[in-house]
Design a protein around this nucleic acid. Structure first.
Lengths: 343, 343
DNA sequence: CTGAAAGCGCTTACAG
DNA sequence: CTGAAAGCGCTTACAG
């Protein structure tokens, strides 16, 4: 309600002086500071965000573009959103959550209108139509997820290729000879979900190198279909002794599928997933997994974004791609395959 | 980049005329409209949000206050957030997602600064310190969740008391004599989570009326503790034949707990939960449940809020409390108790 | 160290 | 139907 003019009047100073006290950008006498702060307190003054944005071109708001696709698993998405929003809050930024289907249009709208100081893009596709908009935008942006062409943007992602290699290597060392990899649905791939094939192709290559059989299948992204998909895949490949799961919905359904078939991990089947620790807890998943680190990715992404927003040097610095190294969290769900002597 | 001044210049009209064409608030000649629209197109004009907000005191942004408590189940919260944000988008509003721990402070900040046209409050507590702020705010607000004193605010919530009665009635009719109700953790209650006791007290009253035994216990809100809690409760009450679950984490863990004990629903145990259909799908829950309708609640809340924002009459209209009637979605997990002849 | 003035980009009475 | 002018509430050179 109160304006800075009223604060200034109450404190007996000019508006510019009041503004200077509040921003701290210019030295002011202690007496004046005291009077202004007291007026702020008494009038319950909060600066008008629109006026400030108009004068400074800064909003202290970060746009978060996150679409909830039907074929993506919402609880997994949520983790990335929380990672971003928690870090933003710590750094003094609010989050404008934009979940429109037409991401390119929404991105143009919020950057052109200067509603936000910068943007974080989730659901990054290999050919992402938001990237041209972002490159042309007057606001910096960072991606969580690797696009085909990361030129001119900052990218943070899990090293999915390394994750695929790691999974295969781990089971190969334990003596497994035939593995099954459950990936996301084909339409995620068709939409350009590069993380699917980055992990899969690396896993296939590693298996080939080591002379293992690796069956790569896709599973649905929702219940109960994904359970069916896994049952079918296990039926089709009875010799499989190790299971790699790069699909959150499949991981969530897996305990049911195993139990149904009377299988136990690692006794009858070794299992490695790819999801976050938090996700494992939420879904009571007892499987070892490659940590997908959504909180860490969100944190790194926002920090980099804020650096670009706040520092003129960083604004112009070269862009980069940062990979988080996959780490295997051992929950005891892998061991030597049943048919092979374990010593 | 382009301002309305540049658009006006390109179209050969004044800024006010350009503004009038775009807002459509004043009649303009078709020829002028054509010229202005063409200039907008060519210059890629998007209005500056801060300037517009400053001039109109409207932002077309809705603040969503949603805190992720450690002791609440995040995937359940997400559903309410999606319900709100989807409806907001349909009505042309963006969402400012505010998840600060100090909700009262955050609420004051975003309303005083006029960053938002209105607010939706989630995680409503019985004694909610955000309510005084909201009542004094210059922006309207609606709650999803019933506070102890709903004076001066609009409230949308599931009728939890009716839900409790319904659950008990349903099992009583089937012949059950001893029931177990698993609620949220005690600290949710201590924090003022009224929905916990609204359902519980109504269930207890209904059980008393019907002469049934109803054991009310609380379960943790995360895995694996909530599983332990349920095991302990079942051990302590071996005569229980019907299970009521008003705790999303408990519901998610229940399939594991039942399987472990060799119990099947409804053969050995009748089960009714309280969660959304979407939640049931995500967690593969095969239990009948009272639909908690987060999407519907979010939709009703946002529509009411937008009504208050956009219509001066609605702005001043009397406030109200709207309850959604609980509906039992039958997934076949209830039947006659084992020890009682089913005829 | 302080203040008068201009400007950010819109909208909206008001006059014509 | 159109335009000149004022105003929304801030910040920031600039002059002193």
């Amino acid at each position: 309600m109160a304006t800075i003019g009223e604060v200034a009047q109450a404190a007996g100073v000019s508006r510019s002086t009041a503004s200077n006290v509040l921003s701290g950008k210019k030295a002011t006498s202690l007496e004046i500071q005291r009077r202004v702060r007291r007026a702020v307190e008494e009038l319950g003054y909060t600066p008008n965000a629109g006026a400030r944005a108009l004068a400074t071109s800064q909003t202290r708001v970060i746009g978060l573009l996150a679409h909830f696709f039907d074929d993506e698993f919402a609880p997994a998405m949520l983790q990335y959103i929380l990672g971003v929003s928690n870090t933003a809050r710590e750094l003094g930024y609010d989050i404008l959550l934009v979940s429109e289907a037409d991401g390119a249009h929404a991105l143009k709208r919020i950057t052109d209108s200067l509603m936000v100081d910068g943007v974080v893009l989730l659901n990054v596709a290999d050919q992402d139509d938001r990237l041209d908009v972002l490159r042309a935008a007057k606001r910096p942006g960072v991606l969580v997820g690797l696009p085909g062409d990361p030129t001119g943007v900052d990218v943070f992602d899990l090293d999915f290729a390394e994750a695929g290699r790691l999974m295969v290597e781990h089971l190969a060392r334990l003596g497994h000879r035939e593995l099954l990899l459950v990936s996301q649905p084909d339409h995620v791939v068709e939409r350009g979900g590069a993380y699917v094939w980055r992990l899969r192709d690396a896993a296939l290559a590693e298996a080939r190198t080591r002379g293992l059989a690796l069956h790569a299948v896709s599973g649905a992204s929702s219940q109960p279909q994904v359970g069916e998909d896994m049952r079918a895949a296990l039926d089709a490949h009875p010799g499989v002794t190790g299971l790699l799961v790069n699909n959150e919905a499949a991981a969530a359904a897996l305990p049911f599928v195993l139990r149904e078939r009377g299988l136990e991990a690692p006794r009858d089947m070794s299992v490695i997933g790819r999801y976050s620790n938090e996700f494992a807890r939420t879904f009571s998943l007892p499987f070892s997994s490659i940590e997908s680190a959504p909180d860490r990715l969100g944190q790194l992404a926002v920090r980099q974004l804020v650096r670009r927003i706040e520092s003129p040097d960083a604004r112009e610095a070269a862009h980069g791609v940062w990979f988080i190294s996959p780490e295997l969290v051992d929950r005891g769900s892998t061991g030597a395959p049943r048919s092979v002597p374990s010593d």
